[in-house]
Nucleic acid binder design. Sequence first.
DNA 1: ACAATAGTGTCTATAAGACAGTATTGA
DNA 2: TCAATACTGTCTTATAGACACTATTGT
Lengths: 252, 252
Amino acid sequence: MSYDPSAFPPFAVTVDLVVLTVRRHALCALAVRRGESPFQGRWALPGGFVRADEDLAQAAERELAEETGLRVHDPAIPAQDHGAHLEQLATYGDPKRDPRMRVVSVAHLALAPDLPAPRAGGDASNARWAPVDELLEQGGYGRDGEPVAPLAFDHAQILWDGVERARSKIEYSSLATAFCPPEFTVGELRRVYEAVWGVALDPRNFHRKVTGTPGFLVPTGGTTTRQGGRPAQLFRAGGATLLNPPMLRPEV
Amino acid sequence: MSYDPSAFPPFAVTVDLVVLTVRRHALCALAVRRGESPFQGRWALPGGFVRADEDLAQAAERELAEETGLRVHDPAIPAQDHGAHLEQLATYGDPKRDPRMRVVSVAHLALAPDLPAPRAGGDASNARWAPVDELLEQGGYGRDGEPVAPLAFDHAQILWDGVERARSKIEYSSLATAFCPPEFTVGELRRVYEAVWGVALDPRNFHRKVTGTPGFLVPTGGTTTRQGGRPAQLFRAGGATLLNPPMLRPEV
DNA sequence: ACAATAGTGTCTATAAGACAGTATTGA
DNA sequence: TCAATACTGTCTTATAGACACTATTGT
């Protein structure tokens, strides 16, 4: 463990982002089309180099803002609207993961409410929300008939790891509310769980669970009828971040 | 997100190791004494540079073997003795975390059974197992009367994160067996949980829980009396890696 | 005998799964 | 009217927590 600063191999360090949202009952991730070689024209996760004077979290926040306009939700500001959740996911450093040079990517996971439309430097055709099932498929055709190619680099692996992280973390935390707008109904929150886990949940038991867990949901007093049917109470996310006992994920 | 390989800031990439074990009913971590500036003479986590042609996991395995002689347990070889568990923990990249240059450290977490004695390049005085409480204390004196200085760099943060990861992971996985020798008793496994969590567990309910979870423990047929009292059955770790329902950690 | 640890059994409280039934809207 | 969603309540089952009791060793 000699620590000689004059003799170390130089690396490039990037941050890549797994930005997840729930649209039309499906778990979707933000993908951008690569304009250059390698993997030119293929879809990839958004990301970029960490700057020389920048912390890893700062770099991830900057990339997230550049790609989506989202600011990161600060838990110290509970009333803040439309903040995304951002956390470090894992680091990928296979020597051959980028054919050009040695790149270590510190992947981050962001959870966002359903957003108007993606923007990638102003060019909408080069960024989209795609169902994660579609992005993780090996070949075939997407819902719009466009042929599906695997994601660039090791981004399929990174996306898979991010999805798994999100799937397990909503079990024991209140993170699922990060997919919801500031005010939401129990039914909307349930549809988030159903989309992320890909299962159907009993609406009555779900209602009992989330309303019975202290600090999870706070009623705002308002109601909404945007789902059709009987008007539903609106809630905000409460202060509790940990769910104990957890929300149980049904067997597959 | 321009991806120009000719213009990226160069980083050094290291792996640092949080190696945990349970000795004398206390959760301990491997610490090495720094021989050079900065933080000369202070305790630090073992680690070193990632080589140019090396994957991150390979680098962590190499460092672990260099510091402890431990090989990583391969789940594909269930009969393998004294294998440690190794997983990536998190990556630390504050621009000022190393005063000499920009270093990004990919921390890894290793869980090991109680080992004979640490070795650091053959020099035993420069490596030791220390209770994590002692390493995380701010000043004061350790159990041997030696004055305690904070760990070098941001290693206190890294150690804390590793301990938290271990504490939560033994709740829902069979990872606690990584702290045990190949054959162990229910009581020994319970003392691992007690040391890692810092709580007392009811021996009877613990026994019911671990023996009643299918695939967690496999009896070997042997018995031992090394704890004193009535001879106890010996077990190996079963194939199950996930504990469902989890082992519940008592409130503090 | 006694201390120490191993192991079994029993009662209770909590919470999840299944599902009946009522309430309030829009079409 | 009916379909759709929201909500309340009830019964059963699984499991954790507390703790009485027996079993088998060393001193």
